[in-house]
């Protein structure tokens, strides 16, 4: 029987996992333990509904509803002093829950404290752009759209950023094949020559060390000269054997060189 391979997550998997293995959890401390973060959380709670909050490895984590991301971030920026958004992106949980998790990593420069705001959206659900609050989201949200296909509403210029504009699929989704799909592997051929040239050009070879021994038109190791495009076997090779010139390959260690052991 053919081996079953799940389609919703084609990423590398652990080769062996013990039956009784239970992954430990990074400790999540209650927010009340930290006086400063408790104040931040109270301010956020006044503005929006907080689903969950805890401190993980020294940073406050707040779970909110996706519709309220603007209000939550505005509160953090204007009331709590989180003037900079360091990073935002998403995590693909489509296979497990049919959802994306979006994170905003914020920084308060005065207190040197960091807060992470997490929210979950459905696959076909958009999220409001935070460009009015943090202009860095202009590039970061474009990258999120490019990599995950998450639509960002009211973004000033929502376009692919890393992949070509006419690309199909979103590479960081767990369903995206590791070596690219059919579109990816034929992208250049289709674009430059047309689909009908797929058979003539042949599939892409990804071996960087590959040399076609009998290709007389590109770089290859034939060892003797042949007319352009001619079959290398048709030429008598007995007169031009492969040999290396001893003049080119000389022993550099013999020469009267001086090696400096200290810089000047």
């Amino acid at each position: 029987m053919r081996k079953y391979t799940p389609k919703e997550n084609v990423q590398a998997k652990a080769k062996y996992t013990d039956r009784f293995w239970v992954a430990p959890q990074v400790p999540r401390n209650p927010v009340e333990e930290d006086e400063y973060f408790a104040g931040v959380l109270a301010a956020v709670k006044e503005a929006v509904e907080v689903l969950d909050a805890y401190i993980e490895i020294g940073q406050l984590v707040i779970h909110i509803r996706p519709e309220q991301n603007i209000e939550a971030l505005r509160t953090l920026k204007e009331e709590c002093g989180y003037a900079m958004c360091s990073e935002l992106s998403a995590v693909d949980y489509l296979a497990q829950d049919g959802e994306f998790e979006i994170f905003y990593q914020l920084l308060n420069l005065k207190e040197a404290k960091r807060v992470r705001v997490l929210t979950r959206i459905k696959e076909d659900q958009g999220i409001e752009s935070i460009v009015p609050l943090y202009a860095m989201a202009n590039f970061a949200e474009r990258e999120m759209y490019d990599m995950f296909g998450i639509y960002v509403n009211n973004h000033p210029y929502l376009k692919r950023i890393l992949m070509p504009d006419d690309w199909e699929g979103h590479p960081l989704r767990k369903t995206y094949p590791l070596e690219g799909d059919e579109f990816a592997s034929w992208y250049e051929v289709d674009k430059i020559f047309g689909k009908e040239y797929r058979d003539i050009i042949g599939p892409e070879n990804r071996d960087p060390a590959r040399v076609d021994r009998y290709d007389t038109q590109r770089f290859s190791r034939i060892g003797h000269e042949v007319p352009f495009g001619a079959d290398p076997k048709s030429v008598d090779t007995t007169e031009t054997p492969i040999e290396y010139s001893s003049e080119i390959l000389s022993d550099y260690n013999k020469g009267p060189h001086k090696v400096l052991d200290k810089r000047k």
Partner: peptide, 15 residues
């Protein structure tokens, strides 16, 4: 070497 280490579940951001 063959399977790799398994860090605990969780998230970290280290600047």
């Amino acid at each position: 070497v063959t399977q790799g280490m398994r860090p605990p579940k969780g998230t970290v951001y280290a600047p």
